[in-house]
Structure formats: structure tokens, C-alpha cells
Write a protein that binds this DNA or RNA. Sequence first.
RNA 1: GCGAGUGUAGCUCAGUUGGUUAGAGCGCCAGUUUGUGGUACUGGAUGUCGUCGGUUCGAUUCCGAUCACUCGCCCCA
Length: 426
Amino acid sequence: MSSLQPVRGTHDLLPEEMRAFRHVVETGRGVAARYGFAEMATPIFEFSGVFARTLGDTSDIVTKEMYTFADRKGESLTLRPEGTAGIARAFISNGLANDLPFKVFYAGPMFRYERPQKGRQRQFHQIGVELLGVSEPQADVEVIAAGRHIIDALGIKGNVTLEINTLGDTESREAYRGALVAFLSGRIAELSADSRERLERNPLRILDSKDEGDRAVIADAPLLGDFLNPASRAFYDDLKNGLMDIGLDFVENPRLVRGLDYYGHTAFEFTTDALGAQGTVMAGGRYDGLIKTMGGPATPGVGWAAGVERLSMLLAEAPAAERPVAMIPAGNDAVIRREATILTERLRRAGFCVDLAFSGNMGKRMKRANKVAAKVAVILGEDERLARAVTLRDLDSGEQTTVSLDRMEETLRGLFAGGGDAFGGI
RNA sequence: GCGAGUGUAGCUCAGUUGGUUAGAGCGCCAGUUUGUGGUACUGGAUGUCGUCGGUUCGAUUCCGAUCACUCGCCCCA
């Protein structure tokens, strides 16, 4: 094993893995486009304030997981830990509030200084959508439907469940927060050390604790549902009805909360039991206060992000690479080699994916053709050259025939189209 | 950040109760077949036994540290 290691929590994407990875991103991009989300990209680093202010200073991401550094001018920059803040910043920077709704899809690397585990890396990749400018719950329904559609289109292994909850509007949430803190303070002795700390910082998160003692206490805790004001309750009901109208199954999870401070109303997660502790595959919610908090015009928003690595690990089957044509010069004669290069380029210009065997005897070159899963071998030797022809061998059936050069592309297309009698009429 | 486990060939793993030349399967390379692949057969190469240090006559094996990964917590995608 080499001493040249990649940085902790980072990984190389070798071609085979990359195919699965790209399939996830391309499927996401394609499905999102059907829902009207146009792709955009923001820089992978921003001024640190973009994240520090928007994610909230109680979130773990801001308090201990950011890759922050000073550039040569002493400016504090941060590698983006998630995508929404950058999109929101771009939305404001570019004055996009005049053209609502604003619907975007994005894909790219994110960075968090965390302890790596399966499905949890320091550099990972997300795809995500954001829908800004619509305060009606139909927007939430559309965003969630796009997410479900992508997961279905990918053919994810195992069961992926949609869990939803409402955090209510600010008024409801503050009322609940007060009640919850009062309740938990009364039973603080029963709480885990982690949760005691969270009581001040982010009490809602205690609801999500995996500690058994905590869970016993939480079972008796007041429910957020009982603190929703009429508007918040109506919003949540509309969301649920909207999901049911289009046949999206969901499970209500009153303990589902969000780690980031900017969320309100809708919170949702798509989870699987196939990834151990990292079961969340896609998550999001509504963030009506975010744009204003960042200094932009008050604009509601809703969106989600999904982990590309997590999704690609769950891919039922990664798409196979395209089957090439193998160009096989017979022998090492300089004239044949030149001719092979010319024909290879000609086929590529004609749209074929061509693997040119550079060296070795014929057997070796054929083996290579087999290894790259070529569909057809184009054999070019002295006989063919003199006849201004090539021999085409179907590597699946073993049938081969010699065709004149001006029929090469046509015959190849026939073979790729799967026509059994592609050699017919030659 | 906390607790635990693992680290031997490109991959999956066996092994040495501390002893001189470290193994298998898969893969890779070559040959049987110098104008024909997949199957089969034959042969071959490859390791600072993660890294550094300690104990020892001697360490891949024992001890310590360190790095990486894995599992749980935390957090989240």
C-alpha cells in the first residue's frame, strides 16, 4: 500500500464508480428539469459570513464542521458545507427577486469537517433543488414530488420512506419551544449529557435523540402539533392533502426536526434502512425567513438536498459503459497502422465510440476488444487494405464478413441496431 | 469530538502459538493459437505484512504511538 494517501474523508471516483455517480446526477438533473428546475451553479467557496449567518450559530455545521481559511488578503472564506446558502446569496446578489418563482437545480461538492464513516465523507456531493417565491404549500408538494420521482427513477434498493413533519411558523415554534424547555428542565436529571447541552442551544433536537433515557422523557413531552396556530395547522393539512392527491405515501414523524436554523413549517426526509446510521438520503424543508435574514427582500423558499454518494451506493444497478467498436490493425506494418488511425478517426466523426488497439499481435488485440466489451471488431489487414475494405466481426455472435469501406458505417449501424441480418445483402 | 474494531499482492482474504525462502482465489502478464476474442489448459510476476518507534539474538506476529478505514454515539446528505 502506497504512502500516498488521499486526505482523510476524501475519495477518488474511479471510472466504474464515476458512472454510477454520474447516473445519479444526470437522473436528478433530468427529472428536476421536468418539474421546471433549471440548473445553476454557485462557487464552492463563499465569504464565511454567508454560512455563519444563514445556518445559524447553534448548528453543528457552523460551530465545528466548516472548512474555513483566510485567503492571501486575510479574508475569511469557507468551503461550502451545503448548497442552499450559496443559492440564496446568488439570488440576492443577482437581484433575482423580480422574477418569481425562482426554481433551480444544483449539483456539486460540499465540505464538512466530520469524522468519516460509511456514507459520510469530508468532501461529498449533493444534488438539490430550491423553489423561491411561493408561500403556498403546493410548492412544498412539488419539491417533494420531484425528490420522490428522482429516487424512483434511480431504482434505489430497499425501502425509501418519506417522513414529514411541521415545525410551524415562528410564532408556533417559539410557543412550543418555551413549553418544551420548561418540561425538559423539570426532568433534566434524566437527560443525557448531550441533551442537557442541547437544552440551551437547540432544544428541538432533543426530540431526535437516540439515547434511551432521552427517549423515555420525550415520550411524555408536549407535542409541537398542539402548539400550532391555525395558519400553521392549515398549511400542514394542505401539504398532507397535496401529497395524498398525487399518491405520495408518507409517514408523519413528530420528532423530525432540522439541524439548520433557517427551517420553518415543512420538514421532510427520505430515509432508508440500508445505510446504517447514515440513513437519510434526501432531506429538506421550508425556509421562509432565510432570504430576509441574509439581507434580501422577504422571499419564501422550500427545497431539499440529496447525498450523491449515498444514492449511488443504493443504486440497484449502475448503467454499463457504452459498448465500443474495436479497431484492430492486423500486424504492425506502418501502412496498416496509418490506415487504422485514419479509419478510427473517421468512425469517431461518424458518431461511433472506438477503441483502437495500439500494439500486440492479433490475438492480444482481440482480447483487448473483448475486455472493453466491444460489440464489433473492425479488422484491417493487408488483404482488406488492398481491397479497400474492412472485416467486421460481431463479437457476440462470432459472425464476420468483409465490407467495402464505403459501406463500413452503414453496416456497423446495422450491427449496433441489433439487426440479425445486418450482413445480409452485402 | 467520544467509545470499539480492523489494516498481509491491484481486489477478497488465509497464515506465521516470535525464527531464516509470506500463501490462496480473483484479476494481471505470457504461452498453447506470429490474421481472430470470450471457455479451457500451462506457466509467470507482484508485497518495505499501513507507518514510525520499543521489547528481543531475531518482529509481519508482542507492546506503544500514529495514519486510514469500518461500526456505534454525535451530526447529517
